[in-house]
C-alpha cells in the first residue's frame, strides 16, 4: 500500500507492519516489478530506460543492482 506525499512516497508493508519513506528512484523501481514476475537488474534497467533518461546503461546498471539489494534487505522485494 503506497501513498504519495508532496516530497516523498510512503510505503506501508503489510507483512511487517512497517512504514517506509522513500524517494526517487525507489518508487520507480518498485513500479517496474509490479507484475510480481521475477526480473534481473538488467530487466529492471531496461524497463526504467523506456520511461526515464538514466544516461549510459553501463553506469546505471550497478546503481539499479545496489538499489535492488537494499530493497531486498528491507524485505520489500525477494531475491528469486
Amino acid at each position: 500500500m503506497s501513498h504519495i506525499l508532496d516530497d516523498m512516497v510512503l510505503l506501508y508493508h503489510r507483512s511487517s507492519g512497517q512504514t517506509h519513506m522513500v524517494i526517487s528512484p525507489v518508487p520507480e523501481i518498485l513500479e517496474t516489478l509490479e507484475d510480481g514476475q521475477p526480473a534481473s537488474a538488467r530487466d529492471v534497467l531496461q524497463r526504467l530506460l523506456r520511461r526515464y533518461d538514466l544516461g549510459p546503461a553501463d553506469a546505471a546498471l550497478p546503481e539499479v543492482a545496489a538499489q535492488l539489494t537494499n530493497l531486498a534487505a528491507l524485505g520489500l522485494i525477494r531475491t528469486a
Binding site: L5, D6, D7, M8, L10, T19, M21
Partner: peptide, 11 residues
C-alpha cells in the same frame, strides 16, 4: 513544513 517531514514527526 513539507508533508514528508510532517508525516515523520507525527509518527
Amino acid at each position: 513544513v513539507g508533508q514528508g517531514e510532517t508525516f515523520m514527526r507525527l509518527t
